[in-house]
Simulated assay, not measured.
Amino acid sequence: MSTENALKPIIVPIDLGDRAYDIEIAPDVLDRLGGILTEKFPGARFGVVTDLNVEKNQWARLQKSLEAHGLNYALISIPPGENAKSMARLDSVVFALLKEKLERNDIVLAFGGGVIGDLAGFAAAIMRRGMDFVQIPTSLLAQVDSSVGGKTGVNSPHGKNLIGAFHQPRFVAADLGVLETLSERHFRAGYAEVVKYGLIDDEEFFFWLEENQPEIFAGGPARAEAIARACRAKARVVVADEREMGQRALLNLGHTFGHALESATGYSDRLIHGEGVAIGMALAHRFSTKLGLSNAQDDARVVAHLKKAGLPTNLSDIPGDLPPTADLLDLIAQDKKVSRGALTFILTKGIGKAFIEKNVNPDQVFEFLNEERQK
């Protein structure tokens, strides 16, 4: 793939009938977004929901594009961080949008990482019984995962993403240029979600990532290709199972453990989402081996790749103390995949061979976590 081709816009369609939309991946889509929005939503006003970090680093580009096309907008900027995904912050965002007198036919722009996308998308879902919104993801994690597929919501003290709605965006603008301002830690965390797509059902993609990870991190043409391949993988699953009634749950590989660990660390800077997913994927592979489903060789290969990318893979990699194992198990039991109290995990039979396992024995999970705590 040449550099010239990498710079051309890549369009990934999400074919959901009358709710279909496109993901556009390009280094300059943010600069062209004013024109795209003018064409897609003539006469609309825009409520731009972002956080203070994105406002500082990226708002000037979007503002210039909106104003170049004479678009009417209101900027709503909130503090950054996972703690913004709360009912209190949701209330403040909805209040601000209503105060700006945005109407049902106007558009909410979710301009930020996964937290902003989930929060602003949920606000759009409940505003005036449903407003359209556009995802403008500014992190690698958001570009390959949270901005695509229509999951929106906020966290609860009982667990992550337990309050929300399925609400598809009308367009996703994945600008490659914004990734240059990401911290190394947040880029690495986003990469965990890229790896996930290889581990679910595409071992060739995982092998490709093993070969191309340095160029992806360096910002070469492989970065655009990795994002596009991840988006296509998610698009395929979302179209087949939009509301996670079956196979879409595979996208949660690593998330059952990861979400519990995020909750256990108070959704704090101790463990950001992609790091929780990385540890969760390592745990899912090791737990699968303990159950006799997978093999230690594949486990080692997965862990080696995650470590090469600078990602954590053990509970001991999390700074500070974790709650007792019984409390971790309680958090796992709050996972959205739990059905009538039975634990459901995404396990694996090897690289690219993930599957949904229902009725997992809690005693086995408890024993496994106790063993992992000793590493």
Rank of each mutant, 00 (worst) to 15 (best):
A282G: 14
A264H: 04
Q364N: 13
I272P: 00
Q135W: 06
K56N: 13
D15T: 14
A235H: 11
I10Y: 10
T265E: 02
L75Y: 06
V12R: 03
N161Q: 03
G117Y: 03
G352R: 10
D28F: 09
F368Y: 15
G34N: 06
V108S: 07
N57M: 09
A249I: 02
P27T: 10
F355D: 06
N83Q: 14
G130A: 01
Y21T: 10
S263E: 13
P319N: 03
G258S: 04
G113N: 01
P137K: 05
G320D: 13
S146I: 01
L16Y: 06
K358P: 04
H273P: 15
T348P: 10
A228H: 01
L283G: 05
I116S: 00
V277Q: 05
S268D: 05
F257W: 15
K40A: 07
D327H: 13
K349Q: 15
S92N: 02
S263C: 11
D241C: 02
R373K: 14
A226V: 03
T313I: 03
G130D: 05
M245H: 15
R229W: 00
Y21A: 11
L311R: 01
E357F: 04
K8C: 09
E203C: 09
L343Q: 05
L322Y: 05
E103Q: 15
H167N: 07
V94S: 12
A123M: 03
P27D: 14
E203I: 13
L16S: 08
V54R: 01
D363I: 10
D51L: 08
G198T: 01
P323R: 10
A189M: 00
D363E: 15
A120C: 07
L62F: 02
R128T: 09
K375T: 12
F95A: 13
V360T: 13
V178L: 06
T325G: 07
V29G: 07
T344V: 13
L102P: 00
K64F: 08
G341A: 05
C231M: 04
